[in-house]
Amino acid sequence: MIYFDYSATTPMSPVALETYNRVAKDFFANSRSLHNLGLQSDDILTLSRQTIANILNAHTNEVYFTGSGSEATFLALTGLAFSMKQKGTTIITTEGEHHSVIQALNYLKQFGFTILYVPVNEYGQVTIDNLKATITPDTILVSIAHANSEIGTIQDLTALGTLLAELDILFHSDCVQTFGKMEIPIHLLASASVTAHKCYGPKGVGATYLSKKIPWTSFFHGTTHEFGFRPGTVDVPGIAAFAAGVEEYTPLAGAEMKRLGTLREMIEEEFKEHDNLFFEGHPKKRLPFHLAIRVKGIEGQLVMLELNRKGFAISTGSACRVGESEPPRTLISIGRKQHEAHELIRITLGRWTTEEEVRMFINTFKQILKDLKGV
């Protein structure tokens, strides 16, 4: 099976796997224990926190480990919202955000918060004018993902963050798809969510960046783990593997993004003149390894199953929404009709994708298009 679903998850790198095994074997003690073995585990945790902070260009005491990127988002958004409620109750986001953002904001509604959705353009981008028009006098927080996982469009966080800083509005960004792969303007963010398994680390480990300048309220009152941010014994081996994996990959990311961008362009070039294929998302300002394609009149799930039968693993959108009958939210937000949104397939390349595999995919996809009603 050829894996073309790197935006859903990545395989662990050999470095991350080796680190996990060694730490799990030699530093298994609870990092909160006061004996020597516990102190050794705590040292590993501290070093890992410093590694993640360095990659983010943040301070060590601004990084809090969580059980996933989704949990990182939930705890960040609720923590910021509750701490700012005396100032205002309006939060702005987009219709195309990851399900974890929508879930967190829906939860906040029951506590009197108002959620507003800023319109996006045809590529899923938030423009400065649209954001300005959506902001109200009591807006306290804006949450916009750095890159959309369904259509691949990258937002201009620098421009958006500069505006929000001028207006003294907090800015959170889901950076799960970009962390370790491209620069994040962390100095303009109050908070960011990241995860290990999108950058060749283990599943079940995430992290929240929270600026030390910004007050936050813990969702879990009374907990002492992770400086009061999250309860529960931390997974030191998983966190160490997270740090090791992303530390190894980050220096390679520039060249790797260029290589994967070239492979993506190979696919685009082969199908750009096809009358029944539509490429979604921004043509240039997008994740280099990401393709979002619609086959006119054919449900994405059918195309996905056919490719699976031929030995290719792709997806029809965010893996967090699998099993739901609703179409990808992002496509609806950019004006696609329900049946068009259901046509989406997502092809995402990664570290172990080869040119030979891409050529095999092109030939296989061409044959499938012919087989499916001759499109």
Rank of each mutant, 00 (worst) to 15 (best):
S68E: 08
S68K: 11
E71P: 00
A72M: 05
A72W: 04
F74T: 09
F74M: 04
L75W: 01
L75Y: 08
A76K: 01
G79F: 08
F82S: 08
K85T: 14
Q86G: 15
K87I: 15
G88N: 13
T89Q: 14
I91H: 08
T93K: 08
T93N: 07
T94V: 09
T94F: 05
T94S: 12
E95K: 15
E95S: 13
G96V: 04
G96R: 14
E97G: 13
H99T: 14
H99N: 10
S100A: 15
V101P: 02
V101K: 04
V101A: 03
I102Q: 11
Q103S: 11
Q103A: 10
A104E: 02
N106H: 06
Y107H: 12
Y107G: 00
F113H: 05
F113M: 05
T114E: 10
I115F: 00
Y117N: 09
Y117T: 11
V118Q: 01
V118K: 04
N121G: 06
N121D: 15
Y123L: 02
G124P: 12
Q125I: 00
Q125D: 03
Q125N: 08
T127V: 03
I128G: 00
I128V: 11
K132P: 03
T136S: 07
I140S: 10
S143Q: 02
S143L: 01
A145H: 09
A145M: 11
H146S: 12
A147F: 05
A147T: 10
N148C: 06
N148E: 05
E150T: 14
E150V: 14
I151L: 07
G152A: 02
T153V: 03
T153K: 04
I154P: 00
D156C: 12
L157G: 09
L157F: 13
T158D: 03
T158F: 07
A159F: 00
A159E: 08
L160S: 04
T162G: 03
L164S: 06
L164K: 07
E166K: 15
D168P: 02
L170G: 03
F171Y: 14
H172F: 15
D174I: 09
C175T: 14
Q177K: 14
Q177E: 14
Q177W: 01
F179K: 11
G180F: 11
K181L: 08
K181S: 05
I184T: 03
P185H: 12
H187M: 02
H187Y: 10
A190M: 03
A190I: 02
A190G: 11
S191P: 07
S191M: 12
A192V: 09
S193T: 13
T195N: 15
H197C: 07
H197S: 09
K198D: 01
C199W: 04
C199F: 11
G201K: 06
